[in-house]
Design a binder for these strands. Sequence first.
DNA 1: CTTACAGCTTTGCTCCGCAAAGCTGGTGCC
DNA 2: GGCACCAGCTTTGCGGAGCAAAGCTGTAAG
Lengths: 99, 99
Amino acid sequence: MIDFSKLDKTIHEKARLGIMTLLASRANPWPFQDLKVELEMSDGNLITHIRTLEQAGYLTGEKFTGDGRPQTLYTLTAAGRKAFVDYLAILEQILNLGK
Amino acid sequence: MIDFSKLDKTIHEKARLGIMTLLASRANPWPFQDLKVELEMSDGNLITHIRTLEQAGYLTGEKFTGDGRPQTLYTLTAAGRKAFVDYLAILEQILNLGK
DNA sequence: CTTACAGCTTTGCTCCGCAAAGCTGGTGCC
DNA sequence: GGCACCAGCTTTGCGGAGCAAAGCTGTAAG
């Protein structure tokens, strides 16, 4: 049967699940502003969840200046990608059981 | 893109997601004790989440006595099944985007 | 130099998961 | 009948987390 206790608590949260999904959905890094618009979050809320994921080692941010307005780009780490794949594996089990 | 705000907050919670998945995984109702063992939860914790789902109209419980030890059986309501299917639809979107 | 904007921090409120303890009514056993 | 046990359920309290709101810093634009 499914082991729900293995569901990564850091990822299994609407906001952070959104961030992880977007970062995993393409190879290019995501600018802070794009995440904010796409997920419809406030600065404070978004940065808090980003920090949580960062402290978990799931993503990194790099700040760029000099070329237009400053912006910070976020990317999944290898650990983040693995954790997300593991998470998706459980989602798949739930989907298969649910229908 | 995926609308994460549509992720049902009542279902999107490890414990309750477990309950909903089990109830949806078969036609027969689930006894309280079976849910408890399968999900490894305490009485108090389990009943609390069941109450939450019940107040949302997602499941109903029926208590039976007279035939051996008393037991309560839980079943998904039509609304609960629909809400869960909708939830699974979003999970599917996440899965498709994630790989 | 002044305004605007990107990113980030801090504070505080509120809500929720969870453990712990206890209560009630049905059941088995002597 | 009387006693111990178990299923289900309630209540209380604590700790933690999401989120809004406000403000701060540094960079770019005009």
